[in-house]
Design a protein around this nucleic acid. Structure first.
Lengths: 220, 220, 220, 220
DNA sequence: CAATAAACGAGACGGTACGTCGAGTCTTCCT
DNA sequence: AGGAAGACTCGACGTACCGTCTCGTTTATTG
């Protein structure tokens, strides 16, 4: 479990100024690896950058990965939930994904890449990451998409979880698998060519009549 | 550059059975980490599993990541290029993604997660990975999609590269970011709800008249 | 300088029961390490054993070694100066060294071994130790030996300081260097075979005529 | 167990030049702490002085103490067993204890003080120390004393082990407990005033008739 | 009796060294 | 000659303990 969660749940005996030092350390942790990347980042670097003892680091975070997850989450900030609607799904997506505040500006994208290993090896850490980092972002996205559906812009029967994940999925793939730079132009194209069509598609099982999937699957 | 390329281009001094030992080592490398994941895999493990000296490993591969990339590529195998067309895009996709031979069966998905770090930190390695692993798969997919387009099943103006990447993108995101298991049912749903709609969408810039993106972007 | 001196000299602002708490802590310090030895003893152990804060410990003693020196001194107790004479040197030595009250019963001999390091590295601490621990014992011994000499049992010209130190020296060597258990039988043998002969020896420089040390020393 | 013993007993699979690197490291270990003392000496210091990895140190020695014991033993050297007899016990003792080659020159006396802790806490290490360091010295001394006894210079019934230990005992006590510098003059005085009288004393149980120890011990 | 200020318990903190582990290199021996 | 075996350097990891510091909380003396 990551510290943020812990300090929120467990009422520490001595509240202290509460999270004071923690914040400084996380800042330092983000400051340091901006240029080095996750696994060239050492705990000693963070410690000396924050003028902290390593013991202090390990008292609050179980290990390096946990600290970095926390630091990255803080650095990216939780997207402001009071994002004003632009009236259309297209507008909302562009607003939240493009520009200085958008996903593209996720400064430590390289750091996230480095975390993949740890996130997959340590189930608990992965859970913390999804809770702290992905969670709020998904919640925000879901709210946006629900609003839009309620306004009738999304066809009935469309799997909200799926369409919601399209933009992140394509962007992550673009960045990590294809190793291509992400820019606003690309994001816009994806929205127009993928997300909106998926939202407007008739019920996704409509084509079942054309050709049953059974055939293929039984073939294997 | 990774060994496969090297050993293909450079005529090894000692002809030997040619690549014989290499294959054994790669097999060992896949055998070992099936359960441990990339960074719990050590070179010593591979060496002793293959009954080889570490020096031998480093003689053929520049480092651990290069070896694992090679091993994973071999293990997954290059998809057979002579996949018969089923007559529809939907059928072709289901055929190549589902079942025992499909993406879902990519055994060392956990290993790939571990490689992310290395792929991002080492540009050369990333290139090798994309060439050896992604390359053939993308080429195959491209051939399929081009065939389909030539048969008229994909609207004009659709960005082939983009729609081609949709299925992998969503699957990778599902597995790595959401940490959910991939199965044939999910793949089928994605095909129906995302890929096909994107293929049938009218020219992706058509909606520009409805509402110019400019407006929104300037708004932020 | 060690606390005992300090607290005696400086009139504490708040008189309190005066030294009350100090005694409790020293007792705790002796209680704890009975089985662990000096450097497996931690200040936290002492603190929690005494239900005291570490700050309290460091307010009274400069460091761990100072505390342990004090604790050991107290534990051993200062030998009662009113030891009755038995009429012979042999009797006095046996009386003060053997039995339950004797040196052999110096419970924290293992602790003393652990102090060696600190005593040698920290000159000030060593001085305090010699003053608090060795001092009173030497003074007592000196009084005994002087009495005995006055009674004529020790030859003139014998170096009192030297013969005084023989028994402690041999015992310490036995225990620490040879690592053999000390018991009353051994102490008695040393008295008879070493201490008494040295006391009865004619003037120790008498043999200088026999063979001058010069010869050898110049030889080097 | 300490490395010397190990490498002597266990026939290493690969003999190597045998002890090559080990010797270099021990030299470095002695070079470093000459001025700092045992516990200000760190493994990293030794490692970097010897241009060795810490892992190498820990592969050969179980811990810091074991390494230092080995290093000290080597540095002091095993006393040459072919010391020529001077014809008298007094001469032999002076020859072996005084001068540049003597005990006084035991350079790392401060280091030894630091080892006391470890020697007492770690039984195995203490045993190794006594075997490697004390052993040869005691053996040499025993040979000298036996020769002397055979020549008739030591009275019958004298406990050789005891008189043998007198000089070391008094010197160690002088140095460690009294914290006084050891010099040749002091050594000579001890020989004359303590060792020789003990050697010439009549059978050590002779005094039993004078006054039985029982009396005193029952008195307590 | 209430206010005040020192001393206190608790324990977080900076720092330093420990002992472990893995990557990648280098050496020795064997076949 | 080339490879297996494995020792080697390097450097990060996570732990332990020291001695300092900062909290709130007694506690005893004062007003």
């Amino acid at each position: 479990m990551v510290s943020t969660a812990v300090s929120a749940v467990v009422p520490n005996r001595r509240p202290r100024i509460e999270g004071d030092r923690e914040a400084e350390i996380l800042d330092a942790a983000v400051r340091v690896p901006a240029d080095v990347g996750y696994d060239r980042l050492t705990m000693d670097m963070v410690a000396s950058e924050a003028r902290a003892g390593k013991a202090t680091l390990y008292r609050r975070w179980q290990n390096k990965a946990a600290l970095v997850v926390d630091a990255v989450s803080r650095a990216k900030g939780i997207p402001s939930p009071d994002m004003p609607s632009t009236g259309t799904l297209r507008g909302d997506l562009l607003a939240s994904w493009c520009g200085r505040e958008g996903w593209s500006s996720t400064l430590p994208m390289s750091v996230m890449g480095g975390l993949m290993t740890a996130l997959h090896n340590d189930e608990e850490l992965g859970a913390a990451f999804r809770e702290i980092f992905s969670g709020p972002r998904q919640a925000l996205a879901r709210r946006v998409f629900e609003d839009v559906r309620d306004r009738g812009e999304i066809a009935d029967g469309v799997d909200l979880d799926l369409v919601m994940s399209l933009l992140p999925a394509v962007c992550v793939h673009h960045e990590f698998v294809l190793n291509r730079a992400l820019d606003d132009v690309f994001v816009e194209r994806v929205i127009d060519a993928v997300v909106l069509p998926a939202c407007h598609a008739e019920q996704s099982t409509a084509q079942a009549g054309v050709e049953p999937a059974r055939t293929v699957r039984t073939a294997k």
